[in-house]
Simulated scan of single mutants.
Amino acid sequence: MARFHTLPVVAVDRLTDDSVALTLTVPPELREEYRHTPGQHLALRRKVDGIEIRRTYSICSPAPDGDGPSTLRVGVRLVDGGAFSTYALKEIGVGDELEVMAPAGRFTLEPAPGLYAAVVGGSGITPVLSIMSTLLAREPQARFCLIRSDRTAASTMFLEEVADLKDRYPDRFQLVTVLSREEQQAGLPSGRLDQERLRGLLPALLPVDAVAGWFLCGPYGLVEEAERALRGLGVPRARVHEEIFHVDSAAPAPGSAATAPAHSTVTARLDGRGGTWPVRDGESLLETVLRNRPDAPYACKGGVCGTCRAFLVTGEVRMDRNFALEREETEAGYVLACQSHPVTEKVELDFDR
């Protein structure tokens, strides 16, 4: 698990003033390992002054047929003070090599007939671009409605790629664009897509009850507002899929006030091997496992990407934040190791399930 391989950069495309798309070459012997489902992401890593930095970026290229992908393309938007995004925009060039983990993530859609829709904001278009392009190409009985929100036209990522889908599938792809800080000559008025606005807008655009799957992706606030709007419109929770790209530090975090025991251990199964180790005061379970198994999977360590998902076999934990696992996953017993702290003296995790 958590295997990284070095892949060369073959293209760097400037999308906007603050975003780029990186295209990586996958050699034939690794193509099966990098086969991906539409919507998955890659973890990239580098070392700065001896400190390892990992970040996840969604794959925007269509999912491959046949023997797996010969290339992978990801979108990177600059984050203020971002150690990796700054490097990507200002330093990475063609011929450079990046350390890349195999694809992961569950914000996905296997192509199937039906009507699908997405509400995205900013760089949230990235995984949905892969989902849409794969679905429309492979499934002639599928339709897709994209509602996207951006600050201005100039800040809109993958503008040409989305326009190309509209030209290629005019009868099966519906595009609705809202700009929050700029008026459009045609289309919807500017402003935020909040719960109230979406509850009025969505039924006017498409038959909400007929949508087989809703995909919400982008900043925390937009995803929460869209989820509440869909709930108010009676959409079953099982049809709603969410992926959050940016979480404000003040965003509410689920969790328990339960305190950790004085002494606790974690037993972890990873890649077929297990071990038991004491948890140091204040450590997350992921930090404990990493001290003893550096190959444990992780990326953001912020409860957003879901890379460190593990099954809680025994014991009880407290999760500080969870913006990656859906309710069905937590009810089934999955936790985020990077956000989990022991509540019982013994905790057992299985990263292989």
Rank of each mutant, 00 (worst) to 15 (best):
Ala2Asp: 08
Ala2Met: 06
Val9Arg: 13
Ala11Met: 03
Leu15Met: 05
Ala21His: 03
Ala21Tyr: 00
Leu24Tyr: 09
Val26Glu: 02
Pro28Tyr: 02
Glu33His: 13
Glu33Val: 05
Tyr34Asn: 12
His41Glu: 04
Leu42Gln: 00
Leu42Gly: 00
Leu44Gln: 04
Lys47Asp: 14
Lys47His: 14
Ile51Val: 14
Ser58Gly: 13
Ile59Ser: 01
Pro62Met: 08
Pro62Gln: 11
Ala63Cys: 11
Asp65His: 08
Gly66Cys: 05
Ser70Trp: 01
Val74His: 07
Arg77Ser: 12
Asp80Pro: 09
Asp80Asn: 13
Gly81Leu: 04
Phe84Lys: 00
Leu89Val: 04
Val94Gln: 13
Glu97Trp: 04
Leu98Gln: 06
Leu98Asn: 14
Leu98Cys: 12
Ala102Asn: 05
Pro103Gln: 15
Pro103His: 10
Gly114Glu: 08
Ala117Gln: 08
Gly121Cys: 09
Ser123Ala: 15
Leu129Cys: 09
Ser130Tyr: 01
Ala137His: 07
Glu139Leu: 00
Ala142Met: 00
Arg143Pro: 01
Arg143Lys: 04
Phe144Asn: 00
Leu146Ser: 05
Arg148Thr: 13
Ser149Arg: 10
Ala153Cys: 00
Ser155Arg: 11
Thr156Phe: 01
Phe158Pro: 04
Phe158Met: 00
Leu159Val: 01
Ala163Gln: 14
Asp164Tyr: 04
Leu165Ala: 07
Asp167Gln: 02
Arg172Asp: 01
Gln174Met: 12
Gln184Pro: 03
Gln185Asn: 15
Gln185Thr: 15
Gly187Pro: 08
Gly187Asn: 03
Leu188Gln: 06
Pro189Glu: 10
Gly191Glu: 10
Gly191His: 07
Arg192Cys: 00
Leu193Arg: 00
Glu196Asp: 09
Arg199Glu: 15
Gly200Pro: 11
Leu201Lys: 06
Trp214Val: 03
Phe215Glu: 01
Gly218Asn: 06
Pro219Arg: 02
Val223Ser: 06
Ala226Ile: 03
Ala229Ile: 02
Leu230Trp: 01
Gly232Val: 11
Gly232Ser: 11
Leu233Thr: 13
Pro236Lys: 11
Ala238Ser: 10
His241Pro: 11
Ala250Gly: 14
Ser256Glu: 09
Ala257Lys: 03
Ala258Gln: 07
Pro261Lys: 11
Ala262His: 14
Ala262Cys: 07
His263Val: 15
Thr265Ile: 05
Ala268Trp: 09
Arg269Phe: 03
Leu270Pro: 02
Gly274Ile: 12
Gly274Asn: 10
Gly275Ile: 10
Pro278Asp: 12
Arg291Val: 09
Arg291Glu: 13
Arg291Trp: 08
Arg293Tyr: 14
Pro294Trp: 11
Asp295Lys: 12
Ala296Cys: 07
Cys300Phe: 12
Cys300Lys: 11
Gly303Thr: 05
Gly306Thr: 05
Gly306Ser: 06
Arg309Thr: 03
Leu312Tyr: 04
Thr314Asp: 14
Met319Lys: 10
Asp320Met: 01
Asn322Arg: 13
Glu329Gly: 13
Glu329Tyr: 13
Glu329Phe: 12
Ala337Met: 02
Ser340Pro: 09
Glu345Cys: 01
Lys346Met: 07
Lys346Pro: 03
Val347Arg: 07
Phe351Arg: 01
Asp352Ala: 10
Asp352Trp: 08
Arg353Asn: 05
